[in-house]
């Protein structure tokens, strides 16, 4: 793995998840986003504030990927899901559960894990 520059607010956000201090950005009208964002794309509000990410979310959709990109070659098969945390949704890898047992509506917590193939950090969901 080559050293590369951090991706600013994205890596800061991963750090926050890693230290159980996860957050998202919310506009005055309650629309939630992940950083970096300077403006709400839905209502154009620029007053975005950091709000604590709920401890658990619900799986909105999921798929078990058997044909990966080279960066996930040794991870496959793996489950990628979108989890709904209220005003914001997050995409991550579902771990610690048999892929066949993952279902829409499952309650999951969010964490940061390592990708098998590259060792890079990734958002990980685990059943709660």
């Amino acid at each position: 793995m080559t050293e590369s520059a951090r991706d600013g607010e994205y890596d800061d956000w991963l750090d926050s998840i890693e230290s159980d201090d996860g957050y998202y950005l919310e506009c005055s009208n309650g629309h939630g986003w992940l950083p970096p964002r300077r403006v709400c794309p839905r209502c154009h509000d620029q007053e975005l504030s950091a709000v604590d990410l709920p401890e658990s979310g619900e799986i909105a959709s999921h798929t078990t990927i058997t044909v990966p990109t080279p960066q996930f070659e040794d991870d496959a098969p793996y489950v990628t899901a979108i989890a709904d945390f209220g005003p914001v949704s997050v995409t991550g890898l579902v771990r610690d559960v048999d892929p066949d047992d993952v279902a829409i509506g499952d309650v999951v917590g969010i964490d940061v894990g390592e990708r098998v193939t590259t060792g890079d950090r990734a958002v990980v969901f685990r059943p709660r």
Partner: peptide, 24 residues
């Protein structure tokens, strides 16, 4: 790239998420 590809999203994977949501 930051929020989808790094979470393992592939092009078929993205449409699989949409398909499962549609069925649901």
């Amino acid at each position: 790239d930051l929020y989808e590809v790094r979470a393992g999203m592939t092009f078929p994977g993205a449409y699989a998420l949409m398909a499962r949501s549609y069925f649901d």
